[in-house]
Design a binder for these strands. Structure first.
Lengths: 234, 234
DNA sequence: AACTTTAAAATTGTCGACAATATTGTAATT
DNA sequence: AATTACAATATTGTCGACAATTTTAAAGTT
């Protein structure tokens, strides 16, 4: 049961609930990427006032899921390849550091917990090989646990509170079910080992490579798609 | 003439202006760190409605300068040593990567511009040695230029749009006029050299060391202050 | 005197209406 | 026919008022 956002508490205010709802809708593309957001329209749709909607929009903006221009309005961000690669650069940097900090700061209990999670992932993977969805969720679980393990509030906030919503959005929109499940699993294992050894330097290095590999995998896919579409055009 | 925020355009709406005003007030401690923010009071003070104030508060929250709890209200963030060190960890990671990207992506013009800036800093430093203020502003200028040089919107946004407001706040509140002006200047020079050589790996390494040195310098100061206060208590 | 319970006050969340700005569509001009 | 000027429309920004919640104060109980 993968958590969507391990940092946020349960929503109390109606703006909270609308935010949650819109977050899902945007991530899953039900509100299309790049589309304009009409405040009157959405307010009617959710049966709330514009004030409350705007409050929700402000939180979506904090996650970089929408962009706002003064006196013009809000748009859902576009999912461009350039932006995706930019996000991966940031992830490589920040999660690398988070992993180093996790090696220094994680409690023994947290490490035990993370190992248990990996064991379960291996079982799921053995049972339902090829079912990418679970692997994807498992991948997020793993990364969340490492980030939280850094015990660095700034890191946690930027990664879990902001960047990972975008990551999930891209996964949905581009339908990126990683074909490198087995390899990713192995990489996760080694990272946990480094953390368990309290080897911060190695942990950071491995995490950076792990994410860089993922990025290169995407770049390859993009290149493939591009050559395909060129073929068609002929 | 140091820019406070090189990413934001001129404020158009009144909420923009109030945001700018409060940003300065919080950074400079005129609105005390850790203090509660009363919406009715501040709205009266700025002669605006609560809606407009709340819009401004939302932007301050985006910069992590205030924190909000549902049905309770907003507080200015506290300036704790732990949090400061956390920020430095994030900076080390992100600015290191920004520097690597700058080495790859900066235009030749941008590099020329950055070298010119450094030359000017050296003159200012030679003329008014010991005047820390200019050095501090120059330091920010340098870091901003590198970050912008990464040409990575995500990096720029997180660093210039969020983290650097906090950095400036800490500098004000703790009165951290770095006594390592000369050394910092030399480090800046070498970083620019690496960028100029398009050596991303070295550029990242040097920037990380530069920030780590700054962090260690702070840690040393803290330790000093602590031992002093212990002395007093005796 | 310390601790609950309850009522009053204050604060935040939400609403609908109006003002300021941007967008769209139409008519006039070249 | 294309372009500009202007009016009409729609959208966002701002306001003040009310509802929901929390905080404070007071009264009562042990």
């Amino acid at each position: 049961m993968a958590l969507v956002n391990p940092t946020r508490e349960t929503p109390v205010t109606t703006a909270d609930k609308v935010f949650d709802s819109m977050l899902h809708a945007i991530v899953e593309g039900k509100i299309a990427a790049g589309s304009k957001i009409s405040e009157p329209e959405l307010a009617k749709q959710y049966e709330i006032s514009r004030s409350t909607l705007r409050e929700a929009l402000n939180r979506l903006e904090k996650c970089h899921l929408i962009e706002r221009k003064a006196n013009v309005g809000s748009r859902v961000v576009e999912c461009t390849i350039e932006s995706l690669l930019e996000i991966y650069v940031v992830r490589e940097s920040l999660e690398g550091m988070a992993c180093r900090q996790a090696a220094l700061n994680m409690t023994d209990d947290e490490i035990v917990d993370m190992k248990a999670m990996l064991d379960q992932h291996s079982k799921v993977q053995a049972l339902q090989d090829g079912v990418a969805y679970y692997q994807e969720e498992g991948d997020l679980d793993f990364h969340y646990k490492v980030i939280l393990g850094s015990h660095n509030k700034q890191l946690i906030n930027i990664l879990c509170g902001q960047l990972y919503h975008l990551v999930r959005m891209y996964r949905f929109q581009f339908g990126m079910h990683s074909p490198r499940a087995a390899r990713a699993f192995d990489e996760h294992y080694r990272i946990i080992e480094a953390i368990s050894d309290r080897d911060g330097e190695l942990a950071e290095l491995l995490m950076r490579r792990h994410i860089a590999a993922s990025r290169k995998n995407i770049e390859k896919k993009i290149a493939l798609k591009e050559s395909e579409s060129k073929h068609k055009r002929k």
